[in-house]
Design a protein around this nucleic acid. Sequence first.
DNA 1: TATGCGATTGGGCAATTATCCAGTCGAAGG
DNA 2: CCTTCGACTGGATAATTGCCCAATCGCATA
Lengths: 327, 327
Amino acid sequence: MSKSSKNQSVSNGEDTNKRLDDAARAGWLYYVAGKRQDEIAQIMGVSRQSAQRLVSLAMSSGIIKVRVDHPIARCQQLGQQLRDEFGLKYVEIVPDDPLSNSTTTGVANAAANELENRLKREDPQIIAIGTGQTLKATIDLLPNMNCPQHKIISLAGNLMPDGAATFYSVIFAVADKIKALSYPMVLPVLASSREERILLHAQSTIQSTLKLAQQANIAFVGIGDLGAEAPIYRDGFVSHKDLKILQKAGAVAEICGWVFDQSGILIDGLTNDLVASGPLPSPKSCLIIALAKGKKKLPGVSAAIKGNLINGLITDETMAIALLKNI
Amino acid sequence: MSKSSKNQSVSNGEDTNKRLDDAARAGWLYYVAGKRQDEIAQIMGVSRQSAQRLVSLAMSSGIIKVRVDHPIARCQQLGQQLRDEFGLKYVEIVPDDPLSNSTTTGVANAAANELENRLKREDPQIIAIGTGQTLKATIDLLPNMNCPQHKIISLAGNLMPDGAATFYSVIFAVADKIKALSYPMVLPVLASSREERILLHAQSTIQSTLKLAQQANIAFVGIGDLGAEAPIYRDGFVSHKDLKILQKAGAVAEICGWVFDQSGILIDGLTNDLVASGPLPSPKSCLIIALAKGKKKLPGVSAAIKGNLINGLITDETMAIALLKNI
DNA sequence: TATGCGATTGGGCAATTATCCAGTCGAAGG
DNA sequence: CCTTCGACTGGATAATTGCCCAATCGCATA
């Protein structure tokens, strides 16, 4: 396993490996063995500052994974209430973080945890993945694994309107990390016309990916709001004009590009006619977990639950409380 | 972040829960959300010192679990060499810790990790557990889980010679933590005579436990040295005189009370005639992982491998290197 | 060989965290 | 009602960690 890998770059490769190796060792000594940084420096024969840098690198490069193994009562209770109230199959609530406005911390960790659990299963799983910031953060938190028995399916198109492959990395990163078969959707998020969509979907590779997506056991999706800063607008998938039209039509959010109203009903006739993603998996056969944090997503989450678009949720306390208040 | 933390009063349950809950939240904010302790203090409405205490409690009480997700090259390589050289099925090497003489750090973590992986499986596992300090530390590191599908079998007697239940806690603690069926061996480690052993083993509950132990899929055992500070002597299971006799007879170590010589061959006729533990599971059907760290255990580990008593090993770099040198 | 450039290093110091300690609170008991 | 005891608190302070910066190193290029 640890053979000297073919050097990819003259200056990097070997060197970077060595450094990460040292970082891992330093991180181990610090977090597992409980050494102080100056002790680590002594053990590893470097200066204290270098030891500090290694420990810090270990943490920031994700070598060190931390999890909290305690049912935080309030979160547990909120989760149970949500399950009961809305008939959700899976709910995970993470603690609030009032001083931060990150929309991923915590939620991404919890999602990575659940995803990892799935991946540890021996029976082959078909795992569908949407796109978005939170999903990206989730994958970043995933450890390296070896799971050739599973299949990872991209649920949404991965291309930017100009053909660039920005979000590509989500599905590729995950496949790379866990050594599973991956099925990306090499498509734009929205086709430029109904005809194009038909053409795109006629491709045999896309056909089989779409088919697999319908058989997914579990799906992780983000929920995009449709406010002024809507991700699909900000990322250039829909024009400002189209965004306004969607808002007028009562659209509150989207999942994998599928736009829906406050009752969770897909809005026909507008951008939904162009969405290149396949239909969302059926909540009857698939656990569809939405990752959502932040006030802006409340209407979307609420609607997605009402419309039975999702049957699982990972969010934070504030959202949980708001959902329960809205009943 | 090493010393202190001993306040484990047996007082008010409700109160302790609340405190642990707060600790979990503080730990989450600190390690997952990356807040500073004064921010946590502000968020949770306590003084900075109290926040510090909560974070510290979260860590020392094991609510916070840390793992290193990186193949440390040197350890990987040593592990592979050991697998190849001795035909072991499972080897895990943890980094050295030259400044500490703990015999559990690292090894216990790695064992807890492997055990946890097993427990996450859905197909029912029969998991056998020996006794000893390292096993105890391993269980302490295990998170709470819910695995009613598995069975946990105690491999060795759990009673002190005077009937006290000192090591009881290992098997009970594990069963409690993971909600699995547990089969303790309510026996002394050594019977006082051959006749007593027959009597003890005739009990139907013991019978079924012994039978289950033979069907184990995986076993975690410690290796006890038989030097002047031999655990089975120190803990009062054998007298000083018997220890001397065993040493004279060429005994180098014991697993679950079964004493063997430097070739890993069980020594007949002495204390082995009194061992209340059932026979060790067969390495043909069971993955028997020994947990061993520390120079004193080298002869024992080497012998156990030679005699095919074990087919798995979790140890540290020093031991690994020493084993490879001994070939 | 000299030179430029980016990465790395360790000193110095600020920020953060850990611990000491005396005072307070509350429960248990006289 | 008072005392004792143990746990908890916050102020003060020590210990540890994080970061800036100038010096240096490694290396590719002129």
